[in-house]
């Protein structure tokens, strides 16, 4: 379990995050939502250990994150970042095998290769396993990277997966497919923390939602409790109407129509 207490992060005088507390449990999908610049990615980078908090703490299973040796942490939690460049033209299966590096010394075992094959199958890239990474489309590259992070924590008990905007650049089908994969992991006992932009997807797939605004928590809890017309308008500065999803019963958020902004100079 990741336990975050009263987290604060500031650069110089600018406070990017303050007073954020949360518990990311195994077997739960936590969606982090909020407007651009609300501190979502900062929170995820603090959880991943990329940034060191200037206040409060992040604990993983009762230990401070900075006290856990990096290799041990790497076998238990994987991170999919927003940017994924690859400076050399590796084959897709070589890329996914990198997710197994924390698990073997020297040569990969048959089990490592099996995990790579399963992870590739799960994201639907089996046929492209031997392709060179730069020749893939943007969406395929993203799925290949997802396979890499899946392979990293494949057999971890109570493992965690941090996804920073994993749906950017994916088509409708693959957006849902990625979240289906996340849910399948949750059912296997993984904890997933995902930064999402689409509130409806958050409402549909998440067990818990954390809504941020200017680095502070607006609401945190079950989707139906967090995503209300009031909280959304407060966080995003846009009026919305809340419907009920016809088949799933979760909230369905529809922005209210509003007049175009009047702009001076556009005679």
């Amino acid at each position: 379990m990741f336990n975050v207490q009263n987290l604060r992060y500031q650069v110089g005088r600018k406070v990017l995050l303050q007073g954020v507390s949360l518990q990311a449990q195994p077997g739960e999908l936590l969606a982090v939502v909020g407007a651009n610049g609300a501190g979502k990615s900062t929170l995820l980078r603090l959880l991943s250990g990329d940034l060191v908090p200037t206040g409060g703490q992040v604990q993983f299973e009762g230990r401070n994150l900075s006290n856990i040796p990096a290799p041990e942490l790497a076998r238990r939690r994987a991170v999919l970042t927003q940017q994924h460049t690859l400076s050399l033209a590796f084959e897709v299966r070589e890329l996914v095998l990198m997710g197994r590096y924390p698990h073997f010394r020297g040569q990969p075992s048959a089990h490592d290769h099996a995990v790579v094959a399963e992870a590739l199958a799960l994201v639907g890239l089996t046929d492209l396993a031997a392709r060179s990474y730069p020749t893939l489309s943007g969406g395929e590259q993203q799925r290949a990277q997802l396979a890499r992070v899946l392979a990293q924590v494949w057999e971890a008990k109570g493992g965690f997966l941090f996804l920073d905007e994993p749906l950017t650049g994916l088509d409708l089908n693959h957006q849902h497919h990625t979240l289906d994969v996340a849910r399948a992991l949750v059912q296997r006992g993984f904890g997933v923390v995902a930064v999402l932009h689409d509130l409806n997807l958050a409402a549909q797939y998440a067990d818990q939602v954390l809504l941020l605004r200017q680095g502070e928590t607006v609401a945190y809890g079950e989707p139906a409790a967090v995503l209300t017309a009031t909280t959304i308008e407060h966080a995003f500065d846009i009026a919305v109407e809340l419907l009920v999803h016809p088949s799933l019963g979760c909230p369905l958020i529809v922005p209210c129509p509003r007049p175009l902004p009047t702009t001076r100079g556009w005679a």
């Binding site: 099996a114 399963e118 799960l122 497919h177 289906d180 994969v181 979760c250």
Partner: peptide, 21 residues
Amino acid sequence: MPAVAELPAPPKTATPVALPP
């Protein structure tokens, strides 16, 4: 909770999948 697509179970042991050539 939403219906989840049926996905393959994790490999329990090292399944002999063809090693990359």
